[in-house]
């Protein structure tokens, strides 16, 4: 039962609960018009303590397409937070007005704290470098719709694997399904943290390799998940400049890939995927953004407990 629950960590839901969300999302994709009034009369509060146009728009579009309404703030200076209101007081007040809340916050654990004091479902829309569970749902729905399965896949993850929270969550989430193999492609300095290697991969006997060159392994992959090397994650400019261009996907590399490989990216991209790749049928990152909206529609409906055929 997902009604009334919070989504704070990508692993909060079991695989069968995730299946419930994905099968509803697929119904929405099939016939979106049927759901245009599913959330009529319901109010979503978007509490964005740091700017994030993409995720906020995705949530707002999801709620509006379900016939619901949206209130909120997109940066803390325009809210009572600027007067020093605590997260607990903010969520308690918002709980009086809205039916469901989405929170992005630069501090790790802020949505968890909010969920402990909230009487309405709280969705974590990113808490610093910690968790971003709806990105994981987006990635999983993309894989389900485009590959038809979550098992028996060779998944390549490329770029900043050290700080990229979407990568860590995706590894954890896809590790719950059978017979997946990971190819971890990154500079030595930006490899996955030890805890992912030990507590997720080694602990569950999952096959993986760590390599430095994308072109050597691209031919093996069913999925290539590209990530941005974020400037703000570096301690100094020199280090950033040395590594930022290490992993650029261009058509030379894509031509070595399987015909049915899919290229994913959480967006926004900087220069890690050449624009010429956008025209290739394997480029799925804009579809992925659309799946993100659909999965958020399904998630909102499930947490609110609204009827599918409302």
């Amino acid at each position: 039962m997902l009604k009334g629950r919070h989504l704070i960590d990508p692993m909060d839901f079991t695989t069968s609960e995730l299946d419930e969300i994905f099968s509803l999302a697929e119904k929405i994709i099939e016939d979106e018009g049927r759901f245009k009034d599913a959330c009529r009369g319901k109010l979503l509060a978007t509490l964005f303590y740091e700017p994030s146009t993409r995720t906020r728009f995705s949530f707002e579009a999801a709620m509006l397409r379900l016939g619901g309404s949206v209130i909120g703030f997109s940066e803390p200076n325009s809210s009572s937070v600027a007067k020093g209101e605590s997260i607990r007081d903010t969520i308690r007040t918002i709980s009086c007005y809205a039916d469901i809340a989405v929170m992005r916050h630069p501090k790790e654990g802020a949505p968890k704290l909010a969920s402990m004091y909230s009487s309405i479902p709280v969705i974590n829309a990113g808490d610093g470098g910690h968790q971003h569970p709806t990105q994981t749902l987006t990635d999983l729905l993309t894989i389900k719709c485009l590959k038809g399965q979550f098992s028996n896949l060779t998944i390549g993850l490329c770029g900043d694997l050290k700080f990229g929270r979407t990568v860590h969550s995706l590894i954890k989430a896809t590790s719950r399904y059978e017979n997946n193999r990971f190819v971890l492609i990154s500079p030595k300095e930006l490899r996955v943290p030890d805890y992912i290697r030990k507590e997720v991969l080694d602990k569950n006997n999952i096959q993986y390799v760590e390599v430095e060159r994308l072109e050597d392994v691209i031919g093996e992959l069913d999925i290539l998940y590209m990530t941005r090397i974020q400037r703000e994650r570096f301690f100094n400019e020199e280090e950033y400049l040395r590594l930022k261009d290490s992993y650029i996907l261009d058509m030379d590399k894509v031509n070595r890939a399987k015909e049915d490989m899919i290229i994913m990216h959480p967006l926004p991209r900087v220069n890690e995927i050449d624009y010429e790749v956008d025209e290739d049928k394997r480029a799925c990152y804009f579809k992925q953004a659309k799946y993100g909206m659909y999965v958020r529609m399904a998630l909102i409906m499930k947490l609110l407990g609204v009827e599918e055929n409302a």
């Binding site: 997260i87 630069p106 501090k107 790790e108 802020a110 470098g129």
Partner: peptide, 13 residues
Amino acid sequence: KNPRCVTSIEPNI
């Protein structure tokens, strides 16, 4: 001790 943790800013947590 994590300076990025919400405990570093929320009063009386």
